[in-house]
Simulated scan of single mutants.
Amino acid sequence: MKILASDPEVTSGPDQMLAQRHLKITHLVLPKGKTIQRHQSLMTVTVVSIKGSIQFHTDDDVTTLTPGKAVVMTPGEFHWLEAPDADGEVIVVHGVLAQ
């Protein structure tokens, strides 16, 4: 078992909590007005909101993530995030799922 904790000093951008070959866990702090540009991952991506509000975009949809809400994307799906109205924080998990 590993216990992970985010860095409370991070007020903007990513805080890498775990980086392994098939698994990455990142605490992402997105201040109001900031955007993470459109990108994709070769792994399955799960984004879990833990604080504030973030708009999560795909090429086909947009949803507002608030605490308790999460999205799961398939590998190769383009996405981007923005915090137009309020600061937001999410946990992002990139992983290769067992089949």
Rank of each mutant, 00 (worst) to 15 (best):
residue 1 M to Y: 10
residue 1 M to P: 05
residue 2 K to D: 12
residue 3 I to G: 08
residue 4 L to W: 06
residue 4 L to E: 10
residue 5 A to Y: 12
residue 6 S to V: 00
residue 6 S to H: 15
residue 9 E to K: 15
residue 11 T to G: 05
residue 12 S to W: 09
residue 13 G to A: 11
residue 13 G to C: 10
residue 14 P to L: 01
residue 16 Q to H: 13
residue 17 M to G: 03
residue 17 M to I: 04
residue 18 L to S: 06
residue 20 Q to H: 05
residue 21 R to F: 03
residue 21 R to S: 13
residue 22 H to I: 00
residue 23 L to G: 02
residue 25 I to A: 00
residue 25 I to M: 14
residue 29 V to Q: 02
residue 30 L to P: 10
residue 33 G to L: 03
residue 34 K to L: 06
residue 36 I to L: 15
residue 39 H to E: 12
residue 40 Q to T: 10
residue 41 S to N: 12
residue 41 S to E: 12
residue 42 L to I: 10
residue 43 M to L: 14
residue 45 V to I: 02
residue 45 V to G: 05
residue 47 V to T: 15
residue 47 V to W: 00
residue 48 V to E: 09
residue 50 I to H: 06
residue 52 G to S: 06
residue 52 G to M: 02
residue 54 I to V: 13
residue 55 Q to C: 09
residue 59 D to N: 14
residue 60 D to T: 09
residue 62 V to W: 01
residue 62 V to K: 12
residue 63 T to Q: 15
residue 64 T to F: 12
residue 64 T to D: 14
residue 65 L to F: 11
residue 66 T to M: 14
residue 69 K to D: 08
residue 70 A to F: 15
residue 70 A to W: 10
residue 70 A to Y: 13
residue 71 V to W: 07
residue 75 P to L: 02
residue 76 G to F: 10
residue 77 E to F: 02
residue 80 W to K: 06
residue 80 W to V: 00
residue 83 A to T: 03
residue 85 D to E: 14
residue 86 A to Y: 05
residue 87 D to H: 05
residue 92 V to R: 07
residue 92 V to C: 07
residue 92 V to L: 00
residue 93 V to L: 13
residue 93 V to M: 13
residue 94 H to S: 00
residue 94 H to M: 06
residue 96 V to P: 00
residue 98 A to M: 12
residue 99 Q to M: 08
